[in-house]
Simulated assay, not measured.
Amino acid sequence: MRTHLITGAGSGIGAAVAERLAARGDQLWLFARNAGRAKELAARFPGARTLVGDLAEPERLSWALSHQELPDRLDSLLHVAGVFELGSVGDLTPKIWNQQLAVNLVAPAELTRLLLPQLRLAQGQVVFVNSGAGLRTSPQWGAYAASKHGLKALADALRGEESDNGVRVTTVYPGRTATPMQRKVHQQEGKEYDPERWMNAESVATTVVTALDLPRDAEITDLSVRPRG
């Protein structure tokens, strides 16, 4: 039985990954922003453990984790949580920039730093669920894409630094996926949302699990997955 810590397990891709891993009997540690959310996750995933910390305040994560029991070892740390706010560079305020950079980039970096001892012990794997916006961007997507481009740089640096410790690092770049976040994206874009046009979250979960299950003699570094059509 392997042990995984997942952010963003409450919905969308994170929930699909958690369900897949729980179904095969792996041990889950689920990261929640507050105690109420942790209780909901524990009820949804019987047998899972929870950790509480606000990814919007990465500077407080060290303090938060120091007051909770942590896993002894981790086979994987899965960064799935993320936030977005569309807007032109001429309109976005520092508050909006900082919110997206904190959750999408600084918090994954800090959470990884805090859990590296457990990952090194297990020769585990860090998986960053990035976005197509981590490879290219469009008007109105500047702040979100900047955070995701930064996440790619974080993953690439971490891979080089931790290779000798046996830690694998994978980035998955999903295209548009039928999730609650995608519904919000369409609202901000002023477009009608049709989930049938986009990938199912379970399809992205399959790519994540494939990377986790790859034999130890190989490593998937970057994997893009797109809706058909």
Rank of each mutant, 00 (worst) to 15 (best):
E40A: 15
D222H: 15
E57Q: 14
Q123V: 04
A16D: 00
R228Y: 09
G134T: 08
D164Y: 14
D164H: 07
A145I: 09
Q182S: 15
D26G: 13
G14T: 04
H186Y: 08
D75Q: 04
V127K: 00
A143D: 04
T177W: 10
G36V: 09
M181E: 13
R168A: 14
V83C: 13
L55F: 03
A22I: 12
R216K: 13
V209F: 10
A205N: 03
T137M: 05
A153V: 11
T207W: 07
L116D: 11
L121D: 13
N165Y: 15
S76V: 03
L116Y: 09
V106S: 07
D217H: 13
R20C: 03
G10L: 11
G53D: 11
S138A: 04
A218S: 02
A201G: 00
T177P: 11
M181S: 12
I220V: 14
A107P: 00
L55V: 02
Y173E: 10
P71V: 08
L51I: 15
E162Q: 08
L74M: 05
R73Y: 12
A42P: 06
D217N: 14
H67Q: 13
N165G: 12
V209Q: 03
I220D: 01
V204F: 02
A157I: 11
L41E: 01
P71A: 08
D164E: 15
F45W: 15
V126D: 07
V89S: 11
L135K: 05
G124V: 10
Q123S: 03
A146C: 02
L5I: 15
T179V: 10
I6F: 06
T221N: 12
F31K: 10
F45H: 06
L121M: 07
P108E: 07
V172G: 04
L105K: 10
G229E: 04
L78S: 03
T112M: 09
G90K: 02
T137G: 08
G166R: 11
H186Q: 05
V225W: 01
G53P: 04
L78T: 06
A155M: 01
M1K: 10
R37F: 10
S131Y: 00
P46K: 00
A211V: 06
V17L: 10
E162W: 06
K184H: 07
I96M: 11
P215K: 12
A23W: 13
H4Q: 14
F31E: 11
D54M: 06
R159T: 01
A155Y: 00
R33M: 07
P227L: 05
E162M: 05
K39S: 05
T7Q: 03
L115W: 01
Y144A: 01
D75T: 07
E69K: 02
L86Q: 08
A211L: 01
A211N: 00
V172E: 04
S163W: 12
A35K: 07
V208L: 15
L212N: 03
E69Y: 05
R228A: 09
P139W: 08
R2L: 08
E57P: 04
T7H: 01
I96L: 13
R183P: 08
V185W: 15
L101R: 02
R24H: 12
